[in-house]
Each structure stands twice: as structure tokens, then as C-alpha cells.
Computed example of a mutant assay.
Amino acid sequence: MNFYRCTNCNEISINMFNNNSKMLCCKNEMEELKTNTFLEEIDHHLIQVRKIGNFVTITIGKDEHPMLHVHYISWVILKTDKGIQYKYLNVGDTPIVDFLVGEDEEIINVFAYCTLHLLWSLN
């Protein structure tokens, strides 16, 4: 699963199948987003996962990530061995999302998109 961003309008697209297709938006090729690893930002973007039974709670930030108009988590994706689920967040929301998974479903990765610092992942 690869993520792409339009440098013109900031639209985000996901290539689910890693088939090396060029992703286009605004008549231009989109840039591929790589997982961000700035160490000085790790506290804001630390992805914490808690799974109890079928319930998964994901919190972004060691202390909650800011959710201001110019700097917030706009979405979180949970990738499991069965598929993906996503939740959108808005300015002012708490950066915590809940998902429901199957009993035998294994968490593969979690992705979070920060409007200022771009893409972050659990792995």
C-alpha cells in the first residue's frame, strides 16, 4: 500500500496493490509519501495501539497530538491481515479513534496523516 499527495491541491491517494502505476492529479504526477521519521517530532506523532478483544483504540501522540486548524491529524488507517479501515478526524477532535476487528484479525500497521508533518506509521 503506497500513499501519494498532489503538490498542487494536497489530495491524497492510496495505491492499494503496489502495481507501480503513476498516480495523477491536477494533470501532474503525484508525489509518493514516505513514512516520516523526524525524531524531534516523535512525541507528537507516536502511534499507540491498544487492543482488547475485538476493540482497537489508537491514540496519536505521547501526549495528545495538537488538533489545530494549521496542525492536526486528518485521518488514521488501520491495516490488518484482512483489509483496511479508516477514520477521519477534524480540527478540535481528540486524536483517538476506535476500530472493531475480527477475533482472528492481526494488526499489520497503522498510518496517521498530519497536515503539517505528513505521513506517520506504526512500523
Rank of each mutant, 00 (worst) to 15 (best):
F38G: 11
F38R: 10
F38V: 06
F38A: 08
F38S: 10
L39Q: 14
L39D: 14
L39E: 13
L39V: 10
E40C: 04
E41H: 13
E41D: 13
I42V: 09
I42F: 00
D43Y: 06
H44G: 13
H44T: 11
L46E: 05
L46P: 05
L46Y: 06
Q48M: 04
Q48T: 05
V49L: 09
V49G: 12
R50D: 09
R50M: 06
R50Y: 06
K51V: 09
K51C: 12
K51R: 14
I52F: 12
I52P: 08
G53H: 08
G53C: 10
G53A: 09
N54L: 08
F55Y: 09
F55V: 07
F55G: 14
V56M: 06
V56D: 08
V56T: 07
V56F: 05
V56S: 08
T57Y: 12
T57M: 14
T57E: 15
I58K: 04
I58F: 07
I60A: 01
I60H: 00
I60L: 01
I60C: 00
I60F: 00
I60K: 00
I60M: 01
I60P: 00
I60R: 00
G61Y: 01
G61E: 02
K62G: 12
K62D: 07
D63P: 05
D63L: 07
D63N: 13
E64W: 14
E64C: 15
E64A: 15
H65N: 03
H65L: 01
H65G: 01
P66T: 03
P66F: 02
P66E: 04
M67R: 00
M67P: 03
H69R: 15
H69M: 14
H69Q: 15
H69G: 12
V70C: 09
H71L: 02
I73K: 01
I73C: 00
I73Y: 00
I73V: 04
S74K: 01
S74C: 05
S74E: 00
S74D: 02
S74R: 01
W75T: 09
W75K: 09
W75A: 12
V76P: 03
L78F: 05
T80M: 11
D81N: 15
D81G: 13
K82V: 02
G83S: 07
I84K: 09
I84Q: 12
Q85G: 15
Q85S: 15
Q85A: 15
Y86M: 11
Y86N: 13
Y86L: 10
Y86W: 10
K87L: 08
K87C: 12
K87H: 10
Y88P: 10
L89I: 10
L89Y: 03
L89D: 02
L89R: 03
N90Q: 13
N90A: 13
V91M: 05
G92H: 15
D93I: 00
T94W: 05
T94P: 08
T94R: 11
T94C: 12
P95C: 02
P95H: 01
I96A: 04
